[in-house]
Nucleic acid binder design. Structure first.
Length: 354
DNA sequence: TCTGGGGTCCTAAGCCTC
DNA sequence: TCTGGAGGCTTAGGACCC
């Protein structure tokens, strides 16, 4: 059996350990409520005001002017997360960490209820954190189940009852169905996961690789194992939403070249070079476009990455000469470098040709 | 007054090669 | 030499996730 463990309001819970004086107050971890930030995590006290993840902080403050707002400290959450999964790793046959606050554990077939309670107790006693667990034969069902009784709940779906468990739940409860897909499915008259599961395999909505997969998952079929090896990263990027839209080209170039330098640093840290450069631009109306170019040879050099990105930015702004709300620089298409940089000059790894 | 940042995966069109 | 299909690559965008 596979358990999905999800730490309840993780960022907020860590902040409450650091700031016990806020324990009784609604707490929001996220951006500046006076700026363009959004809510990363809201404590359960804040959720009672209708505040939830991804809501703009300005809206959150409107809903609860007395809430305490805290800027996320990702480094701290990483440390906590690493400790949680280190502890859990000693108690499960295998663990797969997904993000900072959740993951899967292989827990064997004997008394899953007791195993889940044991894991929950370990997180509570060793880390003083509350978590919810879902246990099932199928990964996707375990994930949905962990969300079923939050916070602090345990839901075990016995083998053979996966489809039955999923059937009455709303479409959005199934991972992979976001607002757009829900809208499409609802337009076709579907309301619950069971409606999707009941579609004939030949139905147009469940055609294509994605359709076949979501159809299988709706029926509780998910053969993915617990993956203990973290997958290789496929892209690296840096982006920034500006506090005010920027029209000035020189300012955009300054910000963009900084992002290229950050991306380059991260490539060098990982001893990687990339062959595709992408720039992302978001205009004041929130319309977002990307432009990318694939180079003849992979690079990790900040100046080279920025030279390509700047050209793409220039081209896009020639087509649409408007201020930018967001600018991003990213790279993908990784290649192992020919050799590791032993004595490379700062900002210019040694494997880049002079 | 809305709407982050860093990712992955899928699809589709256009182009190229075999 | 022309045609057409298959399939890969590049590019762009969309959707989704934590």
């Amino acid at each position: 059996m596979i358990a999905h463990l999800d730490i309840d309001a993780f960022f907020a819970a860590v902040e409450l350990h650091r700031h016990p004086e806020h324990r009784r107050k609604p707490l929001v971890v996220g951006g500046d409520p006076a700026g363009r930030g959004v809510v990363a995590t809201a404590s359960y006290a804040a959720r009672r005001f209708g505040i939830h993840s991804a809501m703009s902080c300005a809206e959150a403050r409107r809903r609860c002017p007395d809430a305490v707002f805290i800027t996320p400290d990702i480094g701290l959450y990483r440390q906590w997360s690493a400790r949680v999964w280190e502890v859990l790793g000693q108690w499960a046959d295998a663990t797969e960490v997904v993000g900072l606050d959740e993951g899967y554990l292989a827990v064997g077939d004997a008394d899953p209820e007791a195993r889940a309670a044991e894991l929950q107790q370990i997180v509570r006693s060793r880390m003083r954190l509350s978590c919810s667990l879902g246990v099932s034969r199928a990964k996707v069902v375990a994930k949905v189940a962990s969300d079923h009784r939050k916070p602090g709940g345990i839901t075990v779906v016995p083998a053979g009852h996966e489809a039955e468990f999923l059937a009455p739940l709303p479409l959005r409860a199934l991972p992979g169905i976001g607002p757009r897909t829900e809208e499409r499915l609802r337009a076709a008259g579907l309301r619950h996961i069971g409606d999707l599961a009941a579609l004939d395999e030949t139905h147009e909505l469940v055609s294509g690789a994605w359709g076949v997969q979501i159809h299988a998952r709706a029926r509780g079929i998910d053969p993915r194992p617990v993956e203990t090896e973290p997958s290789e990263r496929l892209s690296v990027s840096a982006e920034r939403t500006f506090s005010e839209d920027i029209a000035d080209r020189r300012e955009l170039e300054r910000r963009g070249s900084e992002m290229a330098a950050r991306v380059s640093e991260r490539l060098v840290e990982r001893a990687r070079a990339a062959s595709t450069v992408t720039v992302k631009m978001r205009f004041p109306d929130f319309c977002t476009i990307t432009r990318s170019e694939t180079l003849g040879a992979p690079t990790a050099d900040a100046a080279e990455i920025w030279a390509v990105a700047a050209r793409l930015l220039e081209g896009a702004l020639a087509e649409r000469p408007e201020p930018l709300r967001l600018l991003g620089v990213g790279v993908s298409g990784f290649d192992r470098p020919r050799q590791l940089p032993l004595f490379g000059r700062a900002g210019r790894p040694s494997w880049i040709a002079e």
